[in-house]
Structures are given as C-alpha cells and as structure tokens.
Design a protein around this nucleic acid. Structure first.
Lengths: 229, 229
DNA sequence: TGAACGTTTCGATCATGATCGAAACGTTAC
DNA sequence: GTAACGTTTCGATCATGATCGAAACGTTCA
C-alpha cells in the first residue's frame, strides 16, 4: 500500500549492489563511459555489467547513447548525482562510532570531481579561502557569492550571468563526504573547476574520479587563492 | 579499493529491504515509534523487526532511546531525513517513462509531514501562495524569506530569529517527490507546520505520515493564504 | 558480403540475507 | 520476590537475484 516505500526500496536495491555502486561512483565525474570500461571498473564480466547497466537505464538512473559500435553510459540527471553524493555523505558520517573513520582512498580524499565541480581537501580548502576573503557565504544548506566574489571570479575570465533564467543555481553548497564540510557547487563551482582544468592546475587521472594537482596548480592555489595544500 | 562505493552500497542495501524502507518512511515524520509499532508498519514479526532495527541503529540511521520497558526509535539526524526524501524524489521521478506515474497513496499525495514541515499538494500550494505574494523566493535549490514574508509569519506569532547562529537554516526548498516541485523547509517550514497543528488546521492520522486537513484548515488556508485545495 | 569487435540475451548455478519459531532477556508493577 | 509485558537473541529454513559460459545480435570496416 505505501507504494512510496516500495519505490524507495527499489531505488536503494539498485544502488545496493557493489558492482552497480562502483559503476555509479565512477560515473559521478560526469564523463560518459563505455560498457566495457564500466565492466572493468565493476570487476565483472561484460555480460554481467551489461545486465547491471540495463537495470540502471531502465530505472532512469543512467542514460545511454550509441556511439558507433559501442555504447556510452552517463548519469541520467544532475539530480541523480546530487543524491548519490548525499548518500555518500550519510554512508561515511553514519557509522563513525562503529568502525574506524572509514579509510577512503587517499587520492579521492585529496582532490576529486563531484559531478562538475571540485571536492575533497582541495574543494573544501578553496571554499574556505573564498569565504575567508568574503567572496562567498556558504553554510551547510545555502550559499551566496558576494559582489567581491563575482568580481574575483571575473578577473579569471569567469562570467557568471546572475539572472535567474538558468535552470541551475549560481551557487550552492555541497556537503563533502570525505571532509564532512561543504564545498562550492552550482554554476560557480563548475566554472571554477573548468578554469582549473583549462589552466592545467589539475588533471584527471586515467581512471577514477580523483584528480592530480600539478605543480603549477599548487603554486596557483597558493598565490591566487591563499590555499596551501 | 574504492571503499566509498562499498560504503554507498552498504547504505543502499540497508534501505533496500522493503521492511526497513517501510520503517524509515514511517519515521520520516519525525515522531519516535516503538519497536512493536514499527513491526506492524513493516508487516513482520517483532523479532524480525528487531533485527532490522538493530541494523539501522548500528549503521547510525536510527537512534534508540529506552522509555520504560519499551524502546523508542527515531531517525538519527535531519540529514538522514533529507537524504531519504531526496531518494524518494529520484525514485518517483525516475522510471516515469517505464511505469505509469507510480500511483502514490492519495492521502500522502494530498498532505503529509516531511520530517518537520509540510509536503504534498498542501505543502507545495502553500509555498506557491507565499511566492505569489512575494513573501518568499524559492527555486529548486535555494530559498529566501522576504521582509514581507517575515512580517507575515510574524503576524501569526511566528518569530524567526534571522541570525545565523542556528545550526538549521531559516529557509530552504525541499523537492516534493509527489508534486515534483519544491515546498518550504528549514526553520520557517517547521514553524509553519507547527502553527497549522496548533491551530487545528491539520491533524496527524493515527498511522502513516499523511495528515488530514480539517474544515477549519480548509477555511484558514483559503482566507489567510489564498490557497484553495 | 563477410569478418571483427563490442555488446546483449539466455540458461543454469550459487550465495547472501530475510524470515519466523522458540526461548531468553530486561524492565515494570504488584 | 514473582508475574507480565515488550523486546531481543539464537537457530534453521527458504527465496531472491548476482554471476558466468555460451551464443546471438548489431554495427563498422574491408
């Protein structure tokens, strides 16, 4: 009767399989992946991965696009990414009394993409620095870019149209599951991440969501943002 | 190796069982429940429910408190409630192409509590009405109460300290899974719900999260908020 | 048209964990 | 202390769904 609970359980069951969780986690960086690659990530055979991917698409967690003889899978919507990120936060903050602080891959913890913006130590440190300079107001639930912050980002060539026309919000906090504190998301966060990639401050690692901070990046984050990491 | 995916899968597995999902959904209204009542809700024997409850507590989704010979269970944190609500949204909006619009209990759809504020048709209609009168700015991701809105709520005796001292945010949107549009959450949303209960505009039903709108309530919502439902 | 490749479908096997009966536990009331 | 009640623990049973081998499918390229 309470069908919403059934729906909830169904969605959770979809994420509950380790292989599918691995696939979803991998797709959290926003880039589409082929079925074969995702099979490797999940550590299962292609046919098993195909079965998982089919279920994820059927339940609208994933979108699939045919590119030649292969198929590219990606998260269906930003909402899906947001919820998965939230679940990770609960999953990590939850049993802290039970288990030791859930050792996470060091690389992921240090710096990673969270759909389209930056997370991990780097993401949180950048948000803190922007807050320190009063470029940004950010707590667990709401965020706002100040005039100074808009100008600061503008000095890097980031032009954020502040009008409310956009479907996506300009600036919002995203609770970082590894740091347990908010980092910067929304269009501002995405623009900042894009800037960092373009200027080669950070590089995507061949696999996984973690990113590598280059020497140039270390220097830039220190001198331009006052972030020492 | 990617332990975060394991954590994610573990959390999801916890929610994936229909019985546990029923229990969690029931506890989403914020009121603690005894183990026996939750066994009834889940449709299992007390010993099975006890097993489920133990797992949920162990993984920090639930808190338990001994009240005499019985034990009261409640959601561990507001964050847990928020994530569950988000998951419901994804669960319902997800497979809309596959299945028919996932028929939800009519009562739940009409009016219910969402942890400590109002949701369903009623919740969304109230948010719309407040927006219409420019008491409130609310989109999918951010929300703000205007001066007029603060005054309006004040006229009902709701005094919301706007200082940033509080752990909880004053005003935020919460995506309504049944209406697929945001309703009002945060302290403002909680205060509004409390007002409605105190003035007998709405009453909790003996079981479930849905609430009944009284005749007084229908009248009050129409004359005071301009909401016809 | 035929061959190569990535991907999916089918079928059978196997493991994880949900379930309940029986009994023990802990608290309260008398 | 003893009885009554709500709750938990233990043990055995059972069902769901994850897995892979084999084979078919569909697309691209020669």
């Amino acid at each position: 009767m309470p069908t919403i609970a059934r729906e909830l359980a169904g969605l959770a069951a979809l994420i509950a399989d380790p292989g599918r969780a691995l696939i979803l986690s991998r797709l959290m960086d926003g880039r589409p992946q082929t079925a074969g690659e995702l099979a490797l990530v999940a550590g299962v055979t292609p046919q098993t991965a195909s079965w998982h991917l089919g279920r994820l698409v059927q339940h609208a967690l994933l979108k699939v696009e045919r590119r030649g003889p292969r198929r590219l899978y990606r998260l269906a919507t930003p909402l899906v990414a947001q919820i998965l990120e939230g679940m990770m936060t609960v999953a990590v903050t939850g049993p802290h009394a039970t288990r030791p602080p859930a050792r996470i891959d060091a690389a992921m913890r240090r710096a990673r993409t969270c759909y389209d913006h930056l997370a991990g130590e780097l993401g949180v440190a950048l948000a803190d620095a922007l807050r320190e300079r009063e470029y940004l107001v950010l707590d667990q639930e709401v965020g706002e870019l100040t005039e100074g912050g808009t100008a600061f980002l503008g000095s890097f060539g980031i032009d954020l149209d502040p009008s409310a026309r956009h479907r996506r919000v300009l600036c919002r906090p995203c609770l970082d599951w590894s740091e347990r504190r908010p980092h910067l998301a929304g269009r501002a966060g995405a623009a900042l991440a894009e800037l960092a990639f373009q200027r080669d401050w950070i590089r995507r690692r061949p696999q996984g969501r973690s990113v590598e901070i280059t020497d140039t990046g270390l220097d830039a984050f220190r001198t331009l943002f006052g972030v020492c990491i």
